[in-house]
């Protein structure tokens, strides 16, 4: 494990990998540096969540969640996949409409951890962010080995679903607190849009709500999942 000291901000919450290691849910052997003290509330919440996945095992969720956290990082630009709950979106999707991808995600998590192990000596979730980014770059450039059908395809599958979870309607489990919509300046679903709000450089009226909070579509919401 890389202990080079990056991201040692004291307030940083435990990563999913670290969390799971503590909980004994993943097998990576390296110890968590004591300096990385978790935010106990958030850590507990995440741990509970990982154990409540509908489709993914806690270990799979840790690995795939860690990928999402690097694809859409929480950084100076603002909240990322973690705050948006992108892994919850993916999990719910795999338990529902996107069930055809279920086995691909199991294989992806295994291959990610195996490649990470061979390259850096730990499961993906246990690597430093620099190492994680290097693994993802290897996948993006289709240099990483051991993936089916290939690393690039797996990268694109996870990226596609991560982007959906970040920027889709929060009713599907992601985009919590509309962090994705705020990032791309989407004003939310509006039944009527004025001529003024279609002019250049105007700041349009916003309505940051799930479409299913509208009484017109509430009945549909109950048919979700």
């Amino acid at each position: 494990m890389d202990c080079s000291g990056e991201e040692k901000a004291p307030s940083r919450p435990l990563s999913r990998g670290e969390l799971l290691k503590r909980a004994g849910l993943v097998g990576a052997a390296a110890a968590v540096p004591a300096a990385l003290a978790p935010d106990p509330a958030l850590a507990q919440e995440e741990l509970v969540q990982l154990q409540q996945m509908k489709a993914l095992s806690p270990g799979e969720a840790a690995t795939i969640g860690a990928v999402c956290d690097r694809l859409i990082p929480s950084d100076s630009t603002g909240p990322g996949a973690r705050e948006a709950n992108v892994i919850r979106y993916i999990d719910r999707a795999l338990a529902g409409d996107l069930a055809m991808f279920r086995s691909s995600y199991t294989a992806a998590a295994v291959a990610l951890d195996a490649y990470s192990q061979s390259k850096y000596g730990g499961g993906f979730a246990a690597l430093s962010t620099t190492q994680q980014d290097a693994v993802l770059t290897d996948m993006d450039l289709n240099r990483a080995t051991g993936f089916s059908p290939n690393a690039k395809a797996v990268f694109e599958m996870i990226r596609t679903h991560a982007v959906q979870g970040m920027f889709g309607d929060p009713a599907h489990g992601g985009n919590t607190n509309f962090v994705g919509w705020k990032l791309v300046r989407f004003p939310g679903p509006r039944l009527v849009i004025s001529a003024r709000d279609q002019r250049l450089d105007v700041v349009p009226r916003s309505n940051l709500k799930s479409t299913y909070s509208n009484p017109l579509f509430r009945a549909r919401a109950s048919r979700r999942d």
């Binding site: 950084d75 100076s76 630009t77 982007v163 959906q164 920027f167």
Partner: peptide
């Protein structure tokens, strides 16, 4: 729409990570 918008970036910009998000 927002998902399509997030996927429509110039080829000079990375497709993931902090620089994409920024």
């Amino acid at each position: 729409k927002p998902i399509a918008t997030a996927n429509t970036t110039p080829p000079s910009v990375a497709r993931w990570g902090s620089s994409w998000k920024a």
